[in-house]
Amino acid sequence: MTEKQKHATAYWKENLRYLLICLSIWFLVSYGAGILFKDVLDNIKFIGFPLGFWFAHQGAIYVFIILVFVYVRLMNKLDKKYGFNE
């Protein structure tokens, strides 16, 4: 493997790690809090909502938006670190 390829592989590995973390959160707030654990969470009242219902109808969407922007920031930094930015 050439130096250049090694460099690219290292970049890709870090990217995959970010993806894994982000997608775990994506899964937890929607399928976790909004569906699988909805009934349990509904026992908690959150700003007037049963919590599980809130995640399914509101919270998951807020987390999705934040998540994408966090990923955008992380990747912009990573691009710079590896000199792939333009």
Partner: peptide, 12 residues
């Protein structure tokens, strides 16, 4: 919720 989460989560 299937529509709310489904049609936004796809963008992630």
């Amino acid at each position: 919720a299937v529509y709310l989460m489904g049609w936004t989560g796809g963008y992630v």
